[in-house]
Design a protein around this nucleic acid. Structure first.
Length: 131
RNA sequence: CCAGUCGGCUGGACGGCCGCGGGGCGCGCAAGUGUCUCGAGGAAAGUCCGGGCUCCACGCGGAUACGGCGGCGGGCAACACCCGCCGAAAGUGAUUUCAGGGAUAGCGCCACAGAGAAUAGCACCCGCCUCGCUCGCAGAGCUUCGGCAGGAAGGUAAGGGUGAAACGGUGGUGUAAGAGACCACCGCGCCAACCGUAAGGAAGGCGGCACGGCAAGCCCCGCCGGGAGCAAGACCGAAUAGGAGCACGCGUCGCGCAAGCGUCAGGCCCGUCCGCGGGUUGUGCUCGGGUUGGUCGCGAGAACCAUGCGGCGACGUAUGGUCCAGAGGAAUGGUCGUCACCGCGCAAGCGGUACAGAACCCGGCUUAUAGGCCGACUGGCAUU
RNA sequence: UGGGGUGUCGCCAAGCGGUAAGGCAGCGGUUUUUGGUACCGCCAUUCCUAGGUUCGAAUCCUAGCACCCCAG
């Protein structure tokens, strides 16, 4: 595996709510939220699936697929010091595997652009932490 | 062979690559890492019952209230579960279903229709019969003298009609017409030889029609139930938080008798651009409570498998063998290929493979479930 | 884990054993030159689902489904 920044799992409700206030990118297979926690360090990642996705078996399956996809793509496309939350959608358990990987990859690229743009814009005026 | 009834089992297989949780062992100061091994279900579900376990309450026993259960016998740790039997109902049958105690303990309800709906009422529904009746009406009823019509009188409840249900049914005797008034059978009620542990069955006898339904309406009878739940509960456990006790001490200045308050100094903590700012404070020791957090509770048991024995069966028992998930955002997977099964298609091929995820643990119930397999039995047809 | 509640027309709802009120909306008509208003009429055959009790069930009982709320 490519050695990137270490992954760290988000577990607390407060951590999820923190990320919820950040950027988000929606694809048919997955909804990704991201917010910078610190300038550098571990990549935080959390997974969630609501009851809308299905029963317990289906939700577990969705989270397993997202976890596997994140394990492959996040060290390469994720930014250090940023927390990501992957939210399962209704197509997550049934979508073809390459499609799911594409969706996650595109979402991560989009968020990388958003995060870096915000960093530049935020540099002069430090106090404006909107969105 | 066709149709059906009941019971039981199963719930995809193999391989490549990359991974996950628990445990053992090795290496390592540690972080880790290598290796071996184990790793979801018949319903893990719904949370509807019964228990174990833990804490709380409680002198013992009983009663009331409330809730649950309700044929009999057995099984079980226990049960609302299971087995066998009895009764009732449905089906040609195998078989299935049943909250299946009490309606002379009492109260309540029975709409509409109908004459009448519950200590029966009796007669003003249509009727039937008798008649000593012919009053009233415009008609001193009409008449072929046989009767007909009417009725406000009497008898009757058989027939029709209403209703879910109408106070026994069918046939006969009887009668003016009728009526359990009487008779036979059936039904009903009471008693009952005998059989059965019992629920219950029942030969037979007696009575003489008298006792409608609803208790998943209130209720009565019998039996059962103390409450909460693993977020139970136990242990560990910081500081500038904060409680109690003991010993020591009582810094500077101001006010004050003192307690105390303010101030400065000192100690400690936080932030820091290292200038300082903010907070807090007698010192030491001991004890107890306790938030975040951590550990335990947590899986060798009403356990599973095989065989024998007892029992119709549920089940019990003996011997031998096995160790079998245990997290805390929650593991047992992701992906690719081959095969199996099903559907579509001439074919190549394409699509699909159920319901569903342990969270303290057991015994049941209920509900969901693609497909496949096995056994027992019933009815029909054909053949021998 | 424990406890409580709701489900009736497209929407809001009454009804608590005896033929399913009412309002809004909708449809048709009358009035009006037209629209609005007003008036009249129509609109529930599975009362969330499946069984059962009863002569009779939206109502009573049992099981299930969906949704909501409360406590820790």
């Amino acid at each position: 595996m490519i050695s990137g920044p270490p992954l760290q799992q988000l577990t607390k409700r407060a951590q999820f709510l923190f990320v919820r206030a950040g950027f988000r990118a929606s694809k048919p297979g997955v909804l990704v939220e991201a917010r910078r926690r610190e300038p550098s360090g571990a990549i935080g990642v959390g997974f969630t699936a609501s009851k809308k996705v299905g029963g317990a078996v289906v939700r577990n399956r969705a989270k397993r697929r997202l976890r596997e996809a994140a394990r492959r793509l996040l060290p390469e496309h994720g930014l250090p010091g940023v927390d990501y939350v992957l939210v399962a959608r209704q197509q997550t358990p049934s979508a073809p595997w390459p499609t799911l990987l594409d969706d996650l990859g595109n979402a991560l690229l989009r968020l990388r652009a958003d995060l870096e743009g915000a960093k530049r814009a935020k540099a002069p005026a430090k106090s404006t932490e909107s969105d």
